[in-house]
């Protein structure tokens, strides 16, 4: 379990902001990978923060964030889990798909505070030790990607798609994987990979 001190709240002057940023920067070094992209997309200034407990990939993390911070930004900026990608931040591309209690959600369309108590699984949490998840294996077998930017979202979506029983046919896979865009358009191989992984699961 990771923890970090609650911030002194709100009304910063510019001077105190600079100080607190410096402190946050120092914290970045100490907490190493935990505050990475960092400081980047989430706000340090302005609003009051609240303590949030997130359970991600089997680990509990307590962080202090503004209530408006999305689950996506919390994962990337505060927990250093950059495998979950930000392609649009508006729920349109699917690159940020994660599982919440086994159901696929777009992590940019939900606030971190709303997901306390849920078990979140990101692409980093699919492997068991060095063993890849069968869907990951199938994506490799079928070269179901080119650049890889949408791939974590595709894979999380595929895991859920198969669990939901929506991978029974090619047509069904196309329908139920349609929330994840791939601009390299490796779609043909994605369909094949999902069908293959689903078939393997049935064996």
């Amino acid at each position: 379990m990771t923890d970090e001190p609650a911030p002194e709240s709100s009304a910063h002057t510019r001077r105190t902001v600079l100080k607190s940023t410096a402190a946050a920067a120092a914290g970045t070094v100490v907490a190493s990978h935990h505050t990475s992209v960092a400081s980047a997309e989430t706000a340090h200034t302005g609003g009051a923060r609240t303590r949030v407990t997130l359970s991600v990939n089997g680990e509990r993390h307590r962080i202090a964030i503004e209530p408006r911070v999305t689950l996506l930004d919390a994962l990337r900026d505060r927990l250093g889990l950059t495998g979950t990608k930000k392609g649009c931040d508006r729920g349109e591309c699917g690159a940020c798909t994660v599982l919440a209690d086994g159901e696929r959600i777009k992590s940019c369309l939900t606030l971190a505070v709303m997901r306390q108590g849920a078990e979140i699984t990101t692409v980093e949490g699919l492997t068991r030790g060095d063993d890849l998840h069968p869907v990951q294996e199938a994506f490799i077998r079928h070269d179901a990607f080119q650049c890889g930017a949408c791939t974590p979202g595709q894979i999380m979506s595929a895991v859920a798609c198969i669990d939901e029983g929506h991978a029974g046919s090619e047509a069904e896979i196309r329908e139920w994987m349609s929330g994840n865009l791939c601009r390299c358009a490796a779609y043909q191989n994605i369909v094949a990979a999902v069908a293959d992984a689903a078939e393997e699961g049935r064996r």
Binding site: T28, H33, T35, S36, V37, A38, R76, L81, T82, G83, T84, K85, K86, T122, V123, E124, L126, T127, L132, Q136, F139, I140, F145, G148, A149, T151, P152, I155
Partner: peptide, 13 residues
């Protein structure tokens, strides 16, 4: 690629 370990520029600390 399948583990989300390709760190793009925007993923860098």
């Amino acid at each position: 690629r399948v583990r989300g370990m390709i760190a793009h520029v925007g993923d860098q600390a």
